[in-house]
Every structure is written in structure tokens, then in C-alpha cells.
Design a protein around this nucleic acid. Structure first.
Lengths: 144, 144
DNA sequence: TTCTGTCGCAACCATACCTGTTACGACGGC
DNA sequence: GCCGTCGTAACAGGTATGGTTGCGACAGAA
């Protein structure tokens, strides 16, 4: 599976904004964040747009514009971020419906859905256990 | 995320072969399985090729060729199948390395990797808990 | 009012992966 | 030699992601 890095980048951006505000600055610009992430500012704006729609950050426009956290990193979990930036399910069922006349084709989808639902539930509880404050703490604890 | 259905199709194929053999047949052809899955036989052959390389199925060639299970469904878990058909990690880190001169850019990757490693470990234990025999049982228990 | 810096967003391209399809050689039993 | 099936390459189409450019919208400052 070609995994995507949206969750990683979103967590990076949030931790960056949180640290920047903690250092006394009011707003962070997409260009500053993009510089730390090493990507294009538009990529950051797109992602932060998702986070804004999820109520995790706010944006100001005009001169001196930029991004601020909508709530403290302590009150934000990776599950919030995951739900804001990820769309579909982890595993998909058949693209085209299997043969309903076949016993296996008939019963395989509910069987697999049950497994996948359990996995997604576990995944969510794992993500919900980690706050962005935890992430930032881990980041700052990295050896130089 | 655009999930892929490889795990679903692989489980479908294995359950189908298992049931077919249980009904007294020796080998299953990719065309029969493709008919139940509702896809092209080459797709099935490609997937079963992965499963063969993982030691889950065997193939015969020549006239009367086809596929057989390499071991009982009871001794096969969804984790075996997952590892056979899925390649990369569930979540990716940055595509391009973040700015190492930035505190966040420096520490974000080990921090996220720790989270992702924990999640993958949990995912694997969930998948390892389900045998293909469980799946087939669930399939056969589906209401008509 | 005008200027300036930033966001918002559309458009486009490149890449990568997955799925489906066609084609054809390899194999092995008859 | 014939035939059915696998093995695999090649290609096309769809989709997701990421990178880039361009430009209008906005809001504060001069």
C-alpha cells in the first residue's frame, strides 16, 4: 500500500504552530511551516484548510495573516487529526460486487466488514490515546 | 485514503478454494475464482502468485492445472495474507526530509514513527487473531 | 486610497499504485 | 501434437497524492 503522509504532515504543522505560539508569536504563516516541513506552502494551506474545517485551527487574512490553534495541543488528539485529513476506510471491500449466487461471494463482504470494523475501531482508540501535546513533547525530547 | 481491496480479494479466493476442496474437488482454477470474485482471472493469478510466494497456496500447471491450499485454513491467519499481499507501511513519514535545522523538523519523524509502529503492531495482532477458517465460518453463516 | 502580505482556491502536471485487459509463452497430461 | 491452465509482460484507465503556478480576496498599514 502506498501510504500517504497527510497525517504526518498535519501533526508536524500543528506541533510547529503550537511551539511557535508558545514562544510568544501570534500567528504562523504557511510559508514558515512549509519551510520546516520542506514542501510547498500551498500543500500546507490545503492541509490546514482541512484542519480548519475540523475546528482544530483558525486562519486570519490580510496583512499579518496566518494560522493559530483553535484549542490547546493538550485537547487535540491524533484521532481528531486523522478524521480531519483522511477520507476513506483503511481496507476496501470488492470494487465490483462479487457473485451473489456463489456462497462465498454472497457471504464474504459482511464477514470481512466485521473484521475491518474491529480493526478501525482499534486504530481509532490508539490514535485517540495520543494528544498533540504528547507528540510535541516527544519531538522536543529527540536527541540533538 | 483510497484503500485497496487486495486483502479482501485474497481472503475471498482462499475461502473459495478451501470450500471447493472441502466439497471434494482437487484443484480450483483462476477462472472459477474470478467468476465468484467478479473480476479477471489474471487479477486472481497475480494475487495467488503472491500467496504462493508466501507459502499459502500451491499451483499446478499443465492440463487439469489449478490451485490448492498449501495448508489448512485453520492454520492460516489474515496476518499471513496481509503480509503476503500488502507491501508498504500503513502511514508514511515525510516524502522529502523535513528541515533538520528546525526543532520540530528534527524530532517529528522519530516521534511519529513511534506512534505508527505501535499502531502497526496492534493491527498485526488483530489480524493474527482471525484465521481463514473463522472467515469461511462467518461466510457460511451469512443469512441467505 | 493605495500598497502589501497572506490566505483561498482553481487548474494543471507528474508520480505512483491498483485494477482490468490482452497477448503469448511455458508447462504437463492426454 | 493437442489442449487447458498457469506465468508474466505490456498496456490502459482510474484515483490519490504532492508539487507548482496563477490570481482573486482580504485586511491592515502607510
Amino acid at each position: 500500500m502506498s501510504a500517504n503522509s497527510r497525517l504526518t504532515i498535519a501533526a508536524h504543522a500543528l506541533a510547529w504552530i503550537g511551539l511557535y505560539q508558545r514562544q510568544g508569536h501570534e500567528v504562523a504563516t504557511s510559508e514558515q511551516i512549509a519551510s520546516s516541513v520542506n514542501t510547498n506552502p500551498v500543500v500546507i494551506r490545503r492541509l490546514l484548510g482541512d484542519l480548519r474545517r475540523a475546528g482544530l485551527v483558525e486562519s486570519r487574512r490580510g496583512v499579518g495573516a496566518g494560522w493559530t490553534l483553535a484549542r490547546d495541543l493538550e485537547a487535540m488528539t491524533l484521532l481528531d487529526v486523522y478524521e480531519a485529513v483522511e477520507t476513506g476506510p483503511l481496507f476496501a471491500l470488492h470494487r465490483a460486487a462479487p457473485d451473489p449466487g456463489c456462497v462465498v461471494g454472497h457471504g464474504i463482504q459482511p464477514a470481512m466488514r466485521r473484521v475491518y470494523d474491529g480493526i478501525e475501531k482499534t486504530l481509532r482508540s490508539e490514535l485517540a490515546r495520543v494528544t498533540l501535546e504528547d507528540v510535541l513533547g516527544d519531538v522536543l525530547a529527540a536527541p540533538r
